[in-house]
Write a protein that binds this DNA or RNA. Structure first.
Length: 502
RNA sequence: GCCCCCAUCGUCUAGAGGCCUAGGACGCCACCCUUUCAAGGUGGAGAUCACCGGUUCGAAUCCGGUUGGGGGCACCA
C-alpha cells in the first residue's frame, strides 16, 4: 500500500482532535487509542488538539473530562494541553482552536486572494428555502452557485443592503482520489460535496472542515486516523489541502463502534461516556484491551494485551473494515480477568473508593481473597462486602423465616440445625475462630446430624450475611468475629421461633 | 433521494487462492470441582464464509452484479 509507514519513521505526526461538547466518548477514546498505538508503534509524535470552536456546546468541564479520562486510560501525548486549563506544550501551539482564529482568518484570506474562495451573500434563510425546494423535488441538496461569479456592482449592492458575507470554497468539478491505509484507494466525485462549501460564516467564525485542514497542515500532521464517518468528508479536505498549497496527509478511516442494532454507537442506545465505565469500576487496562480489539487483532490467538504490548504489535493495516458491535459481555469478562490478575494489595488500592469507609484498610485487604474472583466490576465489591459493615439488625431484616430454610427442612428442623451450629461456634474460642477450624467443626456437626453440608450451611449463610449468595461462609465468619456471628445466629433463631411456635 | 463504505458462528475476530471437513475468544448448554455464588477444568451446540455469476486445475480469499447493513450529504463538530 502506498505511503505505508514503517517502524522508526520519526517524521510521522498524528493527532487526536476531540471536541469538548461532551464527556469523553467511547468512540473518541478508541480513535485516540488507535492514534496513540500507531504513533508509538512507529515512533512518531502524537498531538492532542482541542476543537473548542463551538462555544455554545463546549465547556471547560468537558475538556477536563476528556483529558482526565484519556490519562486514566494511559494514553499520553507529546504535544498539546497537558492539563485542562494549563499551558499548551509543543512547537506548533496553541493547541486550542479557540486561540488560533487569526490563522484561520489569514488562510481564508489567501483563498480569497487566489480566487479559490469567494464571498457569498446568501442568508441562511434563503439557503434553507432553496434546500427545501430541492428536497421536495427529490434532488440532492446543493448550493446554487448564486454568488459564485458576482460582479463588483452586485457585490456592492449586497453590501449596501447591509448583508454580511460568508466565505465559500470554490469546489472544482473533478474526481478526488486519495489513499486510505485501511480501505485502499478511494475515489469520490467532488460533485457529491454539494457545491461550493462555506468555510467561514458571515460572523467571521470558521467552520470545522476548514479548520481541521488548516490546523492539520499547520501542525504538520502526516497521518490522519479518524472514524469512518469522516470518509465522505475527506474529498473536501483533500481539495482544501491542495488549494492551500499543502501536502495531503495519509488517511486511515477506522470502522465505527456500533450499538447492538448495528447503528453508530450513540448515547441514546448505549452508555458512551468513558467516565461512566470508570465509575462502575472497569479497569483502564481492561477498557484499553477491549477497545483495541474492537476492529483490530494481532492475527494470532492471544488476546490479553497491556497497552505497551499493544503499541508493539499494533499495525494499522490490520484494522478491520467493518463496524464492530460493542459487546459488553466481553468487556465484563476482560475486566474480571484483569481484576483477578491484580495482587490483593493492588486491588485494595483500586477498591478503596468503591467500598464503605466503615470498612478500614485492614478489613478491606482481609476480605479481598474472599471476593476477588466474584467481581465483574469494582463496584460489585460494595454488595459483596456489605454484610461486614451492616448492623446485625439490618442483616436480620433482609430475610424472613422462610429464607433460612433449606428446601427439605421445615422451621423446626432448621432451628435445630442452626442451634447445633451455634453450639459449635460458641465452643470455639475467639482466638481459634478461623475459617479452617469453623469449617471442620460445622462439617462434623452436619455429618453427626445426617445433613448434607450444603443444607446445613444454608441457614448459617443467611443468618450471617443476610443473603443466600455470599462470599465463602467460613471466611466471612472469621472476618465478622465470634460475638457478631453468635448475635446474628441468635437473631435468626428468634425469627424461626415465631414460626415454630405457631 | 444522491454519494461513499462494508458483508466469516448471536457477538468480537483468525483467514493475504490450495495448510479450511473454516480456527480462537465472549456468550450459551452440559458435566467436573464445590458450602451458595463465582472462579477454574472438560466437552458440546453454533458459520452451506449474504446471494448469483465469473476467473482459476482449485475461491471464504480475485473480478462483476444483486441484496442487506452502515455512514455522509449544514453558515454542527
Amino acid at each position: 500500500m502506498a505511503n505505508s509507514p514503517g517502524v522508526g519513521d520519526r517524521g510521522i505526526r498524528v493527532r487526536m482532535a476531540p471536541s469538548p461538547t461532551g464527556p469523553l466518548h467511547i468512540g473518541t477514546a478508541r480513535t485516540s487509542l488507535y492514534n496513540y498505538l500507531f504513533a508509538r508503534h512507529v515512533g512518531g509524535t502524537y498531538v492532542l488538539r482541542i476543537e473548542d470552536t463551538d462555544a455554545a456546546r463546549g465547556s471547560d468541564e468537558h475538556e477536563r473530562d476528556i483529558i482526565d479520562n484519556l490519562h486514566w486510560l494511559g494514553i499520553t501525548w507529546d504535544e498539546g494541553p497537558q492539563v485542562a486549563g494549563g499551558e499548551d506544550i509543543g512547537p506548533f501551539g496553541p493547541y486550542h482552536q479557540s486561540q488560533r482564529s487569526s490563522l484561520y482568518a489569514a488562510e481564508a484570506e489567501r483563498l480569497l486572494a487566489s480566487a479559490q474562495a469567494f464571498r457569498c451573500y446568501c442568508t441562511p434563510e434563503e439557503l434553507d428555502a432553496v434546500r427545501r425546494e430541492q428536497e421536495e423535488r427529490k434532488e440532492p441538496p446543493r448550493y446554487s452557485g448564486r454568488c459564485r461569479n458576482l460582479t463588483d456592482a452586485e457585490r456592492d449592492a449586497f453590501e449596501t443592503e447591509g448583508r454580511r458575507a460568508a466565505i465559500r470554497f470554490r469546489v472544482p468539478g473533478e474526481v478526488v482520489t486519495f489513499d486510505d491505509l485501511i480501505r485502499g484507494r478511494v475515489e469520490i466525485a467532488a460533485e457529491a460535496l454539494g457545491g461550493d462549501r462555506v468555510i467561514v460564516r458571515s460572523d467571521g467564525s470558521p467552520l470545522y472542515h476548514f479548520v481541521v485542514v488548516v490546523d492539520d497542515a499547520a501542525m504538520r500532521i502526516t497521518h490522519v486516523i479518524r472514524g469512518e464517518d469522516h470518509l465522505s468528508n475527506t474529498p473536501l479536505h483533500v481539495l482544501l489541502f491542495r488549494a492551500l498549497g499543502h501536502d495531503v496527509p495519509v488517511f486511515a478511516h477506522i470502522p465505527l463502534i456500533l450499538n447492538p442494532d448495528r447503528t453508530k454507537m450513540s448515547k441514546r442506545r448505549s452508555q458512551t461516556a468513558i467516565r461512566a465505565y470508570r465509575e462502575q469500576g472497569y479497569l483502564p487496562e481492561a477498557m484499553v484491551n477491549f477497545l483495541a480489539f474492537l476492529g483490530w487483532s494481532p492475527g494470532t490467538e492471544e488476546e490479553i494485551f497491556a497497552l505497551k504490548t499493544l503499541a508493539e504489535r499494533f499495525e494499522i493495516e490490520h484494522v478491520h473494515k467493518a463496524g464492530a458491535v460493542f459487546d459488553k459481555d466481553r468487556l465484563d469478562y476482560l475486566n474480571g480477568v484483569y481484576i483477578r490478575s491484580l495482587t490483593d494489595e493492588q486491588l485494595a488500592v483500586r477498591l478503596r473508593s468503591f467500598v464503605p469507609e466503615a470498612l478500614d484498610d485492614r478489613g478491606l485487604l482481609a476480605v479481598i481473597p474472599l471476593i476477588k474472583e466474584r467481581m465483574v466490576r469494582l463496584a460489585d465489591a460494595g454488595e459483596l462486602v456489605a454484610f461486614l459493615v451492616e448492623a446485625d439488625g439490618e442483616v436480620a431484616s433482609r430475610y424472613g423465616p422462610d429464607g433460612l430454610m433449606s428446601p427439605k427442612a421445615d422451621a423446626a428442623a432448621t432451628a435445630m440445625a442452626l442451634t447445633r451450629a451455634r453450639t459449635e461456634l460458641e465452643a470455639t474460642a475467639a482466638e481459634d475462630f478461623a475459617a479452617g477450624e469453623l469449617e471442620a467443626r460445622c462439617r462434623g456437626a452436619a455429618e453427626a446430624l445426617g445433613w448434607k453440608a450444603g443444607d446445613f450451611f444454608k441457614p448459617m449463610r443467611v443468618a450471617i450475611t443476610g443473603r443466600t449468595v455470599s462470599p465463602p461462609l467460613f471466611g466471612s465468619m472469621e472476618l465478622l468475629g465470634r460475638e457478631r456471628c453468635l448475635a446474628r445466629i441468635d437473631a435468626a433463631l428468634a425469627k424461626l421461633a415465631t414460626v415454630v411456635a405457631a
